[in-house]
């Protein structure tokens, strides 16, 4: 029997949407069972959410005070202990999965396939390289298949499942060399999550300053959008890092992406390729962002936003 274990990403109370996207990928493997591993300090709520995802057979819940924060050095040995008997191990390709999964793969002596964007068979996958400017089709060698799932390539698997929740005690020694200190969030409170939002309003260097970013937030709030940014805007200190979209930031796939004052470096475009519709507003008619935009408007972004707010009023 071949089965896949999907590692759940969560914040202690809520299951991250990236997990249900990874389940969508897992379904395409065509295996006998899909299980989800929830490692938490108190995981009742998260494991119930995981059990509700359709197509999931078993949710394995490991509760340990050490799992209060997702520290890879502590999670990895526990997942390794759970991985016995699985043919596949998947995690979302978020900073959580990217940090954790290679640590597990290396211990198991298996290579990892990063950013799976298409499943051809249970061992053959497509993944992007060179910031998405080339796609490679790869085959995993014999043994357990380990991969992170490019979340922008998969929809959130629907709810309606009723998986069994199985509590598991593990006798694994956990290292003491890594201590979680704190997590400070960039202040997107109350706004939709960048990686899950249907609409994203994004600003670049052209926005000009941290103060000016208030117009980006203003438009986003008006239309219920999440706020994104280019690397240039984050580097310039206009907006915190967790808003960065691109090759090294977040890869997103909203229905509508609106880019204001973003020139469109290939590294940024790598993060928005899967957006349904891209709107670009830029002073520079030759900005590369216009090459990928469905609707481009050459003009002053502040004036355009003012007019947009009036028109959408």
């Amino acid at each position: 029997m071949s089965k896949v274990l999907v590692i759940a990403e969560h914040d202690g109370t809520t299951l991250n949407g990236s997990t249900a996207r990874a389940v969508s990928c897992a379904k395409e493997l065509g295996l006998d069972a899909i299980d989800i591993a929830v490692l938490a300090s108190d995981g009742c709520s998260v494991s119930e959410q995981a059990a509700a995802i359709s197509g999931v057979n078993t949710v394995i819940l490991v509760e340990n005070p050490a799992n209060e924060h997702a520290v890879s050095a502590l999670l990895a040995p526990q997942i390794e202990a759970l991985s016995d008997g699985y043919s596949h191990l998947l995690a979302p390709s978020t900073t959580f999965g990217k940090d954790l999964l290679p640590r597990i793969a290396a211990h198991l002596g298996a290579p990892q396939i990063s950013d799976i964007m298409r499943v051809e068979s249970a061992r053959v996958f497509d993944r992007p390289v060179y910031a998405g400017n080339a796609i490679i089709t790869v085959e995993a060698p014999e043994g357990i298949v380990i991969g992170t799932v490019r979340t922008a390539s998969y929809p959130v698997a629907e709810n309606g499942g009723s998986a069994t929740i199985e509590k598991r005690e593990l006798s694994v020694e956990l290292p003491s060399h890594t201590q979680f200190v704190e997590l400070s969030s960039g202040g997107g409170e109350g706004r939709p999550d960048l990686q899950a939002a249907a609409t994203v309003v994004s600003g670049g260097r052209g926005v000009g300053s941290e103060e000016n970013f208030s117009v980006i937030y203003g438009l986003a709030d008006k239309i219920g959008a999440a706020v994104g940014a280019s690397r240039a805007a984050v580097d310039a200190g206009f907006i915190p890092n967790d808003h960065q979209v691109g090759q090294t930031g977040k890869i997103i796939a909203p229905d509508l992406y609106m880019a204001f004052g973003i020139s469109g470096a290939i590294q940024h475009l790598a993060g928005i390729k899967d957006a349904g519709t891209i709107v670009a507003v830029n002073k520079d008619a030759d900005a590369p962002i216009f090459e990928v935009a469905d609707f481009g408007l050459v003009g002053d972004l502040f004036q355009v936003i003012e007019e947009l707010e009036a028109a959408l009023g």
Partner: peptide
């Protein structure tokens, strides 16, 4: 730099 913001580890 993590998806949720900035995480500090020792």
């Amino acid at each position: 730099e993590v998806d949720a913001g900035l995480e500090t580890l020792s």
